[in-house]
Design a protein around this nucleic acid. Structure first.
Lengths: 209, 209
DNA sequence: ACTAAAATCGACCGATGGTCGAAAATGCAT
DNA sequence: ATGCATTTTCGACCATCGGTCGATTTTAGT
């Protein structure tokens, strides 16, 4: 009741790392068991299938991200910052693991997509609460909150996942977020600063053609 | 220089139908060649890989959808209707082929996602033109048009792909679209009628709890 | 020490995407 | 027609992959 759990955790950890670094499709069960030093049968003693392993790995990741999101929730910061903080915390931790940023590689669509869906699902109620708080404070004003939250999440997920999003993308996202929530003009403008500092090392290729 | 082309088109057509009806992952190369009555080697004489076949099939579909979208563009209808018409035309033709609506099945994520991306890419300039027209006519008012168009497309693609979208989703989408384009309140409200008629046979399960 | 349950092993399987050398089929110049 | 090069077709074969299964070892309770 304990040995087994540990072994499964170990396998999950290995699978997790390999899925992220090499991609789900490019990681074979043989790869995993080789790394773990176990036999095929042992692997299938703990998992029904490779896909189920993916599912559990994703659940692990989700829990991780959700913790981060929840911690932002309780931080003593203004509501708009909370919202952005939560959304930002959903990005699959670029530092820790993912030695190579191979997560959103074209061949990893399946995993990437599954993560996104589950994440959106889980975060909606959390963010909805925050929005309601904001409404009570009078800084937001809107109905159909969960639906609006979902659209915010879908947009941020789709736009900021790509590495080549532009400052125009950000501007429009800010604009749309404010209007989506019925917030005051430019009340979300601070997002710009948050984005310009950590990533995007100036402009890279082309552009100044 | 012609025999070869024809054969390839034939194979493409077969793959196309099978990918849609059974899904990409569930269609084996053997399935395709069996249907076509040719040998493995012949298939790989025309295609580098199964994935490349997918790519070409998608390109075919895209061209098809783009034609439909372009025809809407030239229709003698008001601008807002054009926009909605174009967005609606992007849905992968539910009637013609796709006997079973097996296109957005969970196992078809890869194909579905690839189609979506390419479609958005291609439609952005088209829709942007329409928006500009609208601005000239004074019914819209906004900047960063392509970015806004992209967000509209992303949202519509993400929300309306799922079969369980609610009337709230529609309401919010309408609201956000109007604000995204700087259109007058409720000027996009007609979308509701368009959606209620063709699909959604009343409300289905639960909901009236 | 005995035994039942849990855990591990690895040979084996069917299916799949892909390769390759040889054989037809085709086109063309003589 | 004949010879020859190019294009097209064939299908046996291969490596890999996810998954199965009966046998074997380890563990834990009595």
């Amino acid at each position: 009741m304990k040995k087994g759990e540990k072994r499964k955790l170990e396998l999950l950890e290995i699978a997790y790392k390999m899925f992220i670094s090499k991609g789900y499709e490019n990681t074979s069960v043989d790869d995993i068991i080789a790394k773990a030093g176990i036999a095929k049968g042992t692997y299938y003693y703990y998992f029904e299938s490779k896909e189920q392993t993916l599912e559990e790995v994703i659940e692990m990741m989700i829990d991780h991200e959700m913790e981060a999101a929840a911690s932002v929730l309780e931080a003593p910061i203004p509501i708009p910052q909370k919202i952005v903080g939560i959304i930002a915390s959903l990005r699959p931790a670029p530092e820790e693991h993912s030695i190579e940023g191979a997560l959103m590689q074209p061949e990893n669509i399946v995993m990437h997509q599954k993560i996104k869906r589950r994440l959106v699902e889980k975060v909606i109620p959390l963010l909805s609460k925050v929005i309601e708080e904001g409404i009570e404070q009078g800084i937001f004003s809107c109905d159909n909150i969960p639906e609006r939250v979902k659209m915010m999440l879908v947009l941020s997920g789709e736009i900021f996942d790509e590495e080549d999003f532009t400052s125009q993308d950000i501007d429009v996202f800010i604009d749309i977020t404010e209007k989506l929530l019925g917030a005051e003009e430019n009340s979300m403008g601070f997002i710009r600063q948050l984005i310009n500092s950590p990533k995007t090392p100036a402009d890279k290729k082309g552009k100044t053609k």
